[in-house]
């Protein structure tokens, strides 16, 4: 049932990519290009970041921002991409959408973890403690737990179709819940810590001069391209994994017939 039909127009081209074989060909061509762009962007971003002047309030620690903030942006972008893929997986039942969710989970978790660690490293010199139960930090920690739960779920179910539905459903339920969690954590935070420690905004944002903005944006681009590179590679691996799985099942079946 390989519906390898050629379509015209932009939507048709996008739809063509939905065919796994075509997708693989596309990914194989794109991954090296993306990897090179990522490397260049990182080189530029890190150079700009390290050569940025020190902040008069935060000193050299302000440079952690170039690692930390883009990681959080990409972590949230990853979840949005997963949610869109989840809709694709549930509505069109397309295996490639499911592959996209699966491949994105560990990457999203890694970026969230990076954000938490760098945030903690930043917090020590700024706030004098590794961790505060600040609304933002707490929300990110919860996001990390959601990622971890999804990862555990993705490894627990062997059968791809069942796993696809389960992952997509939990991803979407999580997506619906994230605003509620964010809202409740904000509420909880204002109740318990009446503005004792303000988050990044007060320190970083007014000071966000052009000298900081350019390296930050470059790093954000670099992180995004890193995500796309890793995501395509992850999807390619997942497709190979499934091909191996079905080949093994075929040979198991063939053994039965030969007997």
């Amino acid at each position: 049932m390989s519906d390898v039909t050629t379509s015209t127009g932009f939507l048709g081209k996008v739809w063509d990519l939905a065919n796994p074989t075509r997708f693989l060909r596309f990914a194989n061509r794109l991954i090296p290009v993306l990897a090179i762009i990522t490397a260049l962007l990182f080189a530029a971003g890190l150079y700009l970041g390290f050569s940025a002047p020190q902040d008069y309030l935060q000193g050299a620690t302000v440079q952690i921002m170039f690692i930390h903030v883009p990681a959080m942006w990409v972590a949230m972008m990853t979840y949005s991409i997963m949610s869109i893929s989840a809709i694709g997986s549930l509505v069109w039942r397309h295996p490639l959408a499911d592959v996209a969710i699966r491949a994105a989970i560990p990457i999203g978790a890694a970026f969230t973890f990076l954000g938490l660690v760098t945030g903690s490293l930043w917090g020590k010199p700024m706030w004098g403690t590794w961790w505060v139960w600040d609304a933002r930090l707490t929300s990110v920690l919860i996001l990390f737990i959601i990622y971890a739960g999804l990862y555990a779920l993705s490894r627990a179910i062997d059968e791809p179709t069942t796993a696809a539905r389960s992952l997509a459903v939990i991803t979407l339920v999580g997506f619906i819940n994230i605003p509620i969690i964010k809202f409740s954590v904000d509420w909880w935070n204002t109740l318990h810590q009446p503005a004792s420690i303000s988050s990044l905004e007060r320190i970083a944002k007014p000071a966000l001069d052009v000298v900081f903005l350019y390296p930050l944006l470059t790093m954000a681009l670099a992180y995004s391209f890193l995500f796309f590179t890793l995501h395509l590679m992850g999807m390619r691996n997942e497709i190979f994994r499934r091909r191996i799985r079905s080949m093994r099942m075929l040979s198991a079946r063939a053994a039965d017939k030969g007997a």
Binding site: M1, S2, P20, P95, L96, I239
Partner: peptide, 9 residues
Amino acid sequence: DTLTYGDLL
């Protein structure tokens, strides 16, 4: 004796 679409992946 064909694989289904999901397995063409």
